Amino acid sequence: MPTHDVVSWSAIILGHVKCGHGLKALGLYQQMQQEGVKPVPVTFVGILNACASVAALEEGKRVHEQIIECGFESDVFVCNSLLDMYAKCGSIEDALSFQQDGNT
């Protein structure tokens, strides 16, 4: 594809996550951002799954901040992915704190 939109970027990221290539998915997400493509909720679901698959807690926290900036913190799929990412990264305290803040 000569150019990528958010749909194609999200599909590529999710495909890499499903194939167990979490680090590659994270790299693609960075490339997507460098090209100025804005993520949508499904993009965040994919990148949070990538973070969870490679236990990238700090990257997951940065993505959480981006989710808030984009206004997707109330999306149920994004919220579930955040909880899953925090739990799989071993940060149960963050997962519980996020859940107690009423973001589920």
Score class of each variant (00 low, 15 high):
K88M: 03
Q31W: 01
L57G: 01
I13S: 02
G15M: 02
M32A: 00
N103G: 02
S53K: 04
K38R: 11
S10M: 04
D84L: 09
G20V: 09
D84P: 03
L48G: 00
L26T: 03
H4G: 05
V54H: 08
C89K: 06
R62L: 11
V42Q: 13
A87Q: 02
S97L: 14
V42F: 10
G90E: 10
T104V: 15
W9V: 05
F98R: 04
E35G: 02
R62Y: 09
H4Q: 14
T3Q: 15
G46T: 03
A95D: 09
K24V: 15
C79L: 08
M1F: 11
A11S: 15
I67M: 12
E93A: 12
D5T: 06
A52W: 01
K88S: 04
G22C: 02
V7W: 08
I92W: 11
Q30M: 12
V37F: 05
M1V: 00
K38M: 10
H21C: 01
Q99K: 14
V42M: 11
E35R: 07
K88D: 05
G27Y: 05
L14P: 00
A87H: 08
D84Q: 09
E58L: 13
E93G: 00
P41V: 03
S81A: 15
S81I: 06
F98C: 03
